[in-house]
Amino acid sequence: MTTFVRNQWYVAAYGHEIGRELFGRTILGESIVFYRAESGEVVALADRCVHRRFPLSESRLDGDTIVCGYHGFTYDRAGTCVFVPGQKRIPRTARVKAYDVVEQDSFVWVWIGDGPPEVSPPRAPWLADPAYTTVCGMEPLAARYELLVDNLLDLSHETYLHGGYIGTPEVAETPITTEVDEDAGVIYVSRRMADAACPPFYAKSTGIEGRITRWQDIEYHPPCLYLLHSRIAPAGVLPREDGTDPDGFHVEVVYAITPETEHSTHDFWAVARDFALEDQGVSDFLAENNRTVVLQDVVALNVLEQVIATEPAGYQELSINIDTGGLAARRILKRMAAT
């Protein structure tokens, strides 16, 4: 059974998704309506009128207020009802929940929890850095979010599930190193391949021919943000002793893992690169191919969700070395959910 981690920031949308049209999205089972105020700030309110439960996302904006499309109850940016039909007195309880929102690194983050935010959202600065060009998207996943966490922390599946795109034999063959920062609650999983085949995803985007040095350094910030720092260079080409790396190609792959319900997930993905910044052809290629890879994961995890739903009680799965990061994530998520 899925256990949500509350009192945390979650990505609700990309900034470009939210404008002056009402936008509804469910996060951790909570239906929320978003819109941009006339000042440009993002507003987030509970997506249900207090009167007869009509979704505010199916209503209309009047300036910075939402007018319920059923009976006209009207709410300001703080969720306070400022008008009810047929009477001047507004009931004291006529208000909807207002959510704290932060717009950062192209994401709109929403605080899901009781009371004010306790921490700041984690960062993915490449997504808003002019030194990088980014493609992005979101795919709905009909599976619990923990399955996506497992998937992303064990990239050996690239060899088998994503062959012809990003997978090569070396990914599964290369041992990983795993470190867990218990105090910060961050998991690091690294796989560094000194001499690997160059998958089409990188060969066609970088122009590298032949074999490559390929680094995959994962940084997972439970529960919501996954960062994959990828370095690609011709085989044998390493960063310089002074730390600069002019001969390497760097790709920052970002996933925001946002539970929708106990058995569905918003799978936000973004790919930022520090090369071919103005080449639209490279952007189109990476966007199409990464979406294909994400959809391959979606198909596999949707199947796995159905298998789990029908498996007998007490079934025990087998874990091996490549699962070290995923098992650490499970432990930390369980601890976070219990606090």
Results as ranks from 00 to 15, higher is better:
Phe4Asn: 08
Asn7Thr: 08
Val11Gly: 07
Glu21Gln: 15
Phe23Thr: 12
Phe23Ala: 12
Leu28Trp: 01
Ser31Leu: 00
Val33Asp: 05
Ser39Gln: 12
Glu41Ala: 15
Ala46Glu: 14
Ala46Gln: 14
Arg48Pro: 01
Arg52Val: 04
Arg52Glu: 07
Leu61Ile: 05
Thr65Ser: 13
Ile66Glu: 02
Val67Thr: 13
Asp76Ile: 10
Phe83Pro: 00
Phe83Cys: 08
Lys97Phe: 05
Val101Ser: 05
Gln104Ala: 11
Gln104Ser: 13
Pro117Lys: 02
Ser120Leu: 14
Pro125Leu: 11
Tyr132Leu: 01
Thr133Glu: 14
Thr134Lys: 04
Leu147Thr: 03
Tyr160Glu: 02
Gly163Tyr: 03
Gly167Ala: 04
Thr168Met: 04
Glu170Lys: 10
Glu179Ser: 10
Asp181Pro: 04
Pro200Thr: 04
Tyr202Ile: 06
Tyr202Ser: 03
Gly210Pro: 03
Arg211Val: 05
Ile212Val: 15
Trp215Cys: 13
Gln216Ala: 08
Asp217Asn: 15
Ile218Thr: 06
Ile218Gln: 13
Cys224Phe: 04
Leu225Tyr: 05
His229Arg: 11
His229Ile: 01
Arg231Pro: 03
Ala233Val: 11
Ala233Met: 07
Pro234Trp: 09
Gly236Asn: 11
Val237Thr: 13
Pro239His: 06
Glu241Asn: 08
Gly243Lys: 10
Asp245Lys: 11
Pro246Arg: 15
His250Leu: 13
His250Asp: 06
Glu252Leu: 01
Val254Thr: 14
Thr261Arg: 11
His263Gly: 02
Ser264Met: 10
Trp269Ala: 03
Ala276Asp: 05
Asp279Trp: 01
Val282Lys: 07
Asp284Ser: 14
Asn290Glu: 11
Asn290Gly: 00
Val293Pro: 07
Val294Asn: 08
Val298Asp: 06
Asn302Tyr: 06
Val307Met: 06
Val307Ile: 09
Glu311Leu: 06
Pro312Trp: 01
Ala313His: 12
Gln316Leu: 14
Thr324Cys: 05
Thr324Met: 11
Leu327Asn: 07
Ala328Ile: 06
Lys334Val: 03
Arg335Leu: 07
Arg335Tyr: 06
Ala338Cys: 02
